Amino acid sequence: MKRFISIMLTLQLCIVSFTSNAEPINYYVIANQAMPFQITTENNKHSGIVSDIISRIFIENYTVNYHTYPFNRMISQLEAGGEKNWITYGSPDWGGVQAANLSDMPIYTVSHSILTNAKSDFLYRDIKDIDDKVFVLLYGFDYPTLQPLIDNGQIKELRVKDYGAAFRILDKMPDDAVFIEMTSRIKYNLKIQSRELQNYNLQDFSTLIPSYPIYLALDPNMDSDIQRFINEQLSILSDSGTLTAIINRYI
């Protein structure tokens, strides 16, 4: 019995030691533009697909520090090195710091759509259909397959700071403006702004922006034990169905 108690005390001390010595995780969040992947409320509560995954991965033994910035400032922070053991989300398609070191498995596959006002009879079939349209795009986000068309003047872009501004432009310019964004983010932001999808037309845009996976993006210099732990936990969340349940909560 004494030997059993001794073993249990040793294990408890090891757990306490691991918890107290574990490196903090620095989680970077995009302010206002990344819903439903990252959602921040006015009282600084965090939710969303990526944020919920992070919470489940680090539910024990790790302290997670949250850093919320506008997109461009966040990228600047990470390009400068960021806080030690930082984590956010990214994709090989995005390049740069959000593609430098990714989790072993993706967390979601994104697709893009064209959103137009229902008053418009616009139908997208191929590139010729968009020659006379104003493309509404969010500030800060790059669209590599669209950029050559923007550079040669075939696409006229209009950048806006948030989804509300994009929807208002579609309402004011129903025959002239189209909004290009991730399908999941369009649907989510229409819902939270109490806008009915039936008042808009949503059309697949995968011919110009093919669907692609997104991953957890990790500090290239992240501690190898932490990185291994993240990948192991992500695999467990996937196998248990928890990952799908988190996604279905928002989409």
Rank of each mutant, 00 (worst) to 15 (best):
I107Q: 06
M74N: 11
R195F: 01
G82R: 06
T41P: 09
W86F: 06
V16A: 15
H112E: 07
T244E: 06
A31G: 12
N32R: 13
I246T: 12
V97Y: 11
G241Q: 04
I130F: 00
P92Q: 03
V178H: 03
F141N: 03
Y124N: 01
Y250I: 00
I53V: 11
N43C: 11
S240N: 14
T88I: 07
I59V: 06
I192D: 04
Y250D: 08
S17M: 13
K187G: 06
A166M: 02
K161R: 14
P220E: 09
Y124E: 11
P213R: 08
E157P: 12
S113A: 09
F4V: 10
I5W: 15
Q77N: 11
H112Q: 10
Y89F: 14
T116P: 00
I214T: 02
Y108S: 06
P70T: 04
I226G: 12
I209N: 04
T244S: 14
N101M: 11
I57Q: 10
E232R: 08
E79W: 00
Y62K: 11
Q147L: 05
L158R: 15
M173N: 08
N26K: 01
T19V: 09
I230H: 06
V50G: 14
K172L: 05
D175L: 02
P210R: 00
R185D: 01
G96D: 04
L9Q: 13
M8T: 15
Y66D: 13
S6G: 14
L170R: 01
Q198G: 08
Q154G: 08
L190V: 01
